[in-house]
Write a protein that binds this DNA or RNA. Structure first.
Length: 616
RNA sequence: GCCCCGGUAGCUCAGCUGGAUAGAGCGUCCCCCUCCUAAGGGGAAGGUCAGAGGUUCGAAUCCUCUUCGGGGCACCA
């Protein structure tokens, strides 16, 4: 069972072919070719040349080398064996059966049996008109057909500020969600707030202990507590509001508490903190304990929300774990599994028989002490997501959680849901390098590098872009020195500069007292004859394909690489040719081309939440 | 021991899901502003696609084994 669902966009076409040449975008060029080939193969099937029961995937790809035309299909190669024909011979038969069309100027058979298509120059240049008409919509599509997809990402425990590891999940998840949205999927972004577990208890307890220190008590802070400066700030806010109402003497708080770990193998930090949590509860009572827990949660969650918001990451839903627990849905899910015979009791705990669904061992859902495991609430949460009616749910997790995937799938199956509805995208770690050295990332040490610090240092644009420059399963070395450098080494500036450059040309145009005339431009597109112009046209035409592939494969890095290619094509063109020439037709045609380029740069950067500055 | 991810140019990484002569950025070397921003461009050098088998017309890509690196294998979250 693949963790990552792959999608092919070599669709087998069912609809009747239409060969209209208006408003050709590359995507339709590719689809048109598919339809042409489909028609040809149907014809051969009706003639008995190709077995009639085949419905071959018609692969069309852009050629790497212009000598091979614009597009190539290997369909004759893949059909050769079932048709028991020589590939080149079959290719010739297919070509002979192709319906006539204006969009294609040349069809050739090459190599072992590729069918190469060269597009008509007018069709190629038509992309400029299409882009200028569609503006911000160029690149968007409706292939998602409104299917509902939920993307859950980041979902860091609200026990401290986001660090740079979360940043990668944030940038990646947001880009995937935005890409899907651009492709016509109905996307809902969700952050799951773990506000009901042991970590929250440790957090509340940590805040209380710092509060006691502020009140004047002195003791050794537990090694397993949260030590960040933000904890003291929260404690201070409680102290400001409530004075010493929750103060207890340190010797009372710490009496009969098992010893903390001392770093030399003595003591038990887990037992120590658990006992302190219990003591905290006992001394404060539910209501006063909640003062600390709520202060901590609201403060930290608010900070996370602001942090992500500034990073260009917004959610439709912030889903609280405690509402899931309080609603009885966790209990209901457990009962459901128990009634269906998927649970058993052993060693005083309740186990889910996940091995029956392919997991490598059974998993505890209710601990010996009666507490639900994190897994138990996750069973209910994922079942609930499916029940909310999403066609697909995507979880973006850190790669360290990969072992968790089989049990979640198992639970969905046991709950009577299709486990294929869940897609888990595992994001590998981002390791930050500062001055050639690994940066500390521990959330407990208080010395970690936060997402906010990263954003402050390199800026949102560089951070967003760098994070999606690697595919998610690739380990990432995040080079701070590179991201912060405002030089040509930095790909973000390179792309943004291309955008700014076009703006600059338009300013120059105005300074020289000249106008851009769209009517003249669109009527003069045939004046775009240079090789650099052809390259740019082809690159522009690829954009919708890139957006689609990036979305369907959940690979925003494809878009990032594309944008750099597009910027290169623009810079190369800029260096090779003058745009503001005397010939009105040529000038306007060239300006139309670079304005179309600017539009695509802007649309692409926007999908990654990177700004497109007008000057730099 | 088992599971997941990775190993492609000196470095960091792409490689369109099996196609045509393996690419980019950085670094190194050479060159280009009387010209719309040189935050740019052109060129050169640089490869046993970790290794070995296999699948087929065809493999960096798929399968198996080996090896190296990262991560995971709780009644933690």
């Amino acid at each position: 069972m693949p963790l990552v669902t792959r999608h092919s966009y070599n669709a087998t076409l069912a609809s009747a072919p239409q060969f209209a040449q208006d408003h050709i975008t590359s995507l339709t060029m590719q689809k048109q070719l598919q339809q042409l080939l489909q028609a040809a193969i149907r014809k051969l099937q009706s003639q008995g040349v190709v077995p009639g029961d085949l419905s071959p995937e018609i692969g069309i790809e852009r050629t790497r080398d212009k000598k091979h035309g614009d597009f190539a299909s290997n369909v004759a190669l893949s059909l050769a064996r079932p048709a028991r024909r020589n590939p080149r011979e079959l290719a010739q038969a297919i070509v002979d059966a192709l319906p006539a069309t204006d969009a294609v100027s040349r069809v050739e058979i090459a190599g072992p049996g590729f069918i190469n298509f060269t597009m008509n120059d007018d069709a190629r240049r038509g992309i400029v008109r299409a882009i200028l008409e569609q503006n911000d919509a160029y690149g968007r599509s409706q292939i998602g057909k409104g299917r509902r997809i939920q993307v859950e990402f980041v979902s860091a425990n609200p026990t401290g500020p986001l660090h740079v590891g979360h940043g990668r999940g944030a940038a990646y998840g947001a880009a995937v969600a935005d890409l899907l949205s651009a492709c016509g999927f109905s996307v809902e972004r969700e952050y799951y707030v773990n506000d009901a577990g042991r970590q929250m208890a440790i957090l509340a307890c940590s805040v209380w202990l710092r509060y006691l220190e502020i009140c004047g008590e002195s003791f050794t802070f537990p090694s397993n507590g949260y030590r960040g400066a933000y904890i003291k700030e929260i404690s201070q806010s409680v102290a400001d509001k409530h004075g010493e109402a929750f103060r207890y003497a340190a010797d009372i708080v710490f009496s009969n508490i098992p010893a903390d770990a001392d770093g030399q193998g003595n003591g038990d930090k887990e037992a120590h903190i658990d006992a302190l949590i219990e003591r905290c509860h006992a001394l404060l009572g539910d209501e006063n304990y909640a003062v600390f827990a709520d202060a901590a949660l609201e403060n930290i969650l608010g900070d996370i929300r602001d942090d992500l918001g500034e990073f260009g990451v917004e959610y439709e839903h912030w889903y609280r774990e405690h509402t899931l627990v309080n609603s009885g849905k966790v209990e209901a899910a457990i009962n459901h599994l128990r009634d269906a015979g998927h649970l058993y009791e052993a060693d005083g705990a309740w186990w889910f028989r996940s091995t029956a669904f392919g997991d490598e061992k059974d998993r505890v859902v209710i601990r010996e002490n009666g507490q639900l495991t994190y897994f138990a609430t996750d069973i209910a949460y994922h079942a609930e997501k499916i029940e909310r009616g999403f066609d697909q749910i995507i979880d973006v997790w850190g790669a360290d959680h990969h072992g968790y995937v089989p049990r979640i799938r198992a639970s969905l199956q046991a709950m009577g849901h299709d486990p294929e509805r869940l897609e888990v995208l595992l994001v590998q770690f981002a390791i930050l390098y500062r001055h050639g050295q690994k940066a500390q990332m521990s959330t407990r040490s208080g010395e970690f590098v936060t997402l906010r610090e990263l954003r402050d240092e390199v800026g949102n644009d560089a951070a967003r872009f760098f994070y999606v420059l690697r595919k998610c399963e690739q380990h990432m070395d995040f080079d701070l020195d590179l991201a912060v450098s405002k030089s040509n080494e930095n790909p973000v500036y390179y792309i943004q500069y291309a955008h700014a450059r076009v703006c600059s040309v338009m300013r120059q145009l105005a300074e020289r007292g000249l106008d851009w005339n769209e009517t003249v431009a669109l009527a003069s597109l045939d004046r775009l004859q240079e090789t650099h112009e052809e390259d740019l046209l082809d690159t522009l035409a690829r954009f919708p394909e890139i957006v689609e592939a990036s979305a369907l494969n959940r690979e925003p890095h494809q878009l990032a690489y594309y944008l750099r290619d597009l910027a290169t094509a623009l810079h190369t063109y800029y260096n090779a040719h003058q745009f503001l020439v005397d010939d009105i037709a040529v000038r306007n045609a060239r300006l139309a081309l670079i304005l179309a380029t600017r539009q695509v740069l802007k649309n692409g950067l926007r999908l990654l939440s990177v700004s497109a500055p007008e000057s730099m």
